[in-house]
Amino acid sequence: MHATATYPEPVLRRVKVPAPIALLGAAEAPLDESTTKIATEHVSIRYGRFVAVRDVSLQIRERSIMALIGPSGSGKSTFLRCFNRMNDLIPGAKVEGQVCLDGENVTDPDVSVVELRRRVGMVFQRPNPFPMSIYENVAYGPRRRGMNGRRQLDELVETSLKRAALWDEVKDDLRRKSGLALSGGQQQRLCIARVLATEPEVILMDEPASALDPVSTLRIEELMRELRKAYTIVIVTHNMQQAARVSDVTAFFTMAEDRAGYLVEVGPTGRIFTRPTERLTEDYISGRFG
């Protein structure tokens, strides 16, 4: 499935990961192959002196959808960005603790960020297609790592667009139409196709539907359920119905009095939305928050 064999294995330091402590979701939402894909251990993220996220430890199982919910400023997006080290781009941002992908600590300075980001793709809040044709948008990632064969690229572009449920709408003018000429929902699916073309294992989605209309949102959600069969997905969302509809496990974040975000509770989505154990969670999902 993964094309890792064709690329040099990154120098990752092996880190001992504790056995999955309490995989809360396991009992209520059984999944096949419930192995841990991502595990964070006491992760804190600061911007300069400001602590954005404090001491978060959680595990994300392979081929599942984890939703991160919580009020604005609770550090969900910041936390999401430490999985593919997008926080590196922000001057002054510092991640403490361990973020393990398949048992390898990705915060290690030795880690190849380029390889990490290929394995952990990201979809942003606002669709950001490149100002080039639909075909070139999808082929961009593979081309940059040296894939040049015309037939190989054609095939990859087609399968990626099909998986992103965009192929039928764009197949007739792949090379002529600019990615920017698509509608917002189509652009977002193009961005998903672009990520799929790099053959990732994990897809991070930072409020992927918040800039879209309800119909497009529904299509993205259907797509996520479909992608879940092959990929591990982590989604940040403000929309609680969305979290309830698409995710297997939900993690609720909020912020302390000093404005540092922290994890309140994590569990199977069904339980979080019906019988949360924490008062804060209950207040938030029932709309009594703040």
């Binding site: 593919n84 380029v114 980001r117 950001n128």
Partner: peptide, 14 residues
Amino acid sequence: PQELRTGSLALGTT
């Protein structure tokens, strides 16, 4: 737009 930079870097490009 900054999104083009982050979009490209997030795909694992240098």
